[in-house]
């Protein structure tokens, strides 16, 4: 556990030593601010629902930028070999890196709390859906970050990792948008695989164990795939 925390802490600090964290945080906050406040006064409701709708979408595009270099950069510079020769296992490397980027994501989410607080000063805000929305964002973000880490473990090129993670994340987010065109059986399966379907339930204030389990499953499976990709260096 100590090794995981050490790797995670180093990864977390390294984000703030470079420009990536600041750029992503600024872009997310500015984009969210524009889209959220743009229509807020037209709706005339003290609700954070629209914020979660936009934030869920923006993060699907923004988070792969945080994960693209996690393992790809280490592979390109050769430091991954140095890391593996140290007394740490591949699983500890994967979990440490994941915890590091998850920490940065948590900081990003904490910064967005400024929006619901602003809304609560303008009218009566129901805080129940706000907390469940943040739980949903955290779980969806964990899944997207795990997919990004998995993509980063497959290649030593950051751009390829970014495009693979982006494609997979957007694909899982957009799945439930075309259900009307599909037969009923296929629609129910695709709806179940959609990130947005599970997230929207939490964004409106309902926490269902099924939604939590879905995001947990995607996260664990993506991390297991990343672990296998790193482990495969032994026999490839």
């Amino acid at each position: 556990m100590n090794h995981i925390l050490t790797i995670g802490g180093r990864q977390f600090r390294s984000y703030f030593n470079g420009p990536v964290a600041y750029i992503v945080i600024c872009i997310v906050m500015l984009t969210l601010g524009f889209f959220f406040w743009n229509t807020f006064f037209l709706y005339g409701r003290a609700s954070s629902r629209e914020m979660f709708r936009w934030l869920g979408l923006i993060l699907v595009f923004a988070l792969p930028a945080l994960t693209m270099g996690l393992l790809a950069e280490e592979k390109r510079t050769g430091t991954i070999d140095l890391l593996i020769t140290m007394p740490v296992t591949e699983a500890q490397v994967i979990l440490g890196k994941f915890l590091g980027v998850l920490g940065l994501y948590a900081v990003l989410l904490v910064l967005t709390v400024a929006y619901p607080i602003s809304v609560s000063t303008l009218g009566h805000l129901d805080w129940g859906p706000v907390w469940s929305g943040y739980l949903g964002l955290f779980l969806q973000g964990s899944a997207v970050l795990a997919i990004g880490l998995m993509a980063s473990s497959w290649t030593d090129n950051q751009l390829i990792a970014l495009f693979v993670a982006l494609t997979l994340s957007v694909f899982f987010w957009v799945l439930d948008k075309f259900l009307a065109l599909l037969p009923t059986n296929a629609a129910s399966v695709l709806e179940w695989l959609s990130f947005d379907y599970h997230f929207q339930s939490m964004a409106r204030g309902v926490v269902d164990l099924r939604d939590v389990l879905f995001f947990f499953s995607v996260t664990v499976f993506a991390l297991a795939l990343a672990f296998r990709a790193l482990e495969s260096r032994r026999w490839s």
């Binding site: 129901d126 129940g128 204030g205």
Partner: peptide
């Protein structure tokens, strides 16, 4: 499955 409605009035 367990399902919790966190809205104030159980909307």
């Amino acid at each position: 499955s367990p399902r919790v409605d966190l809205t104030q009035n159980g909307l």
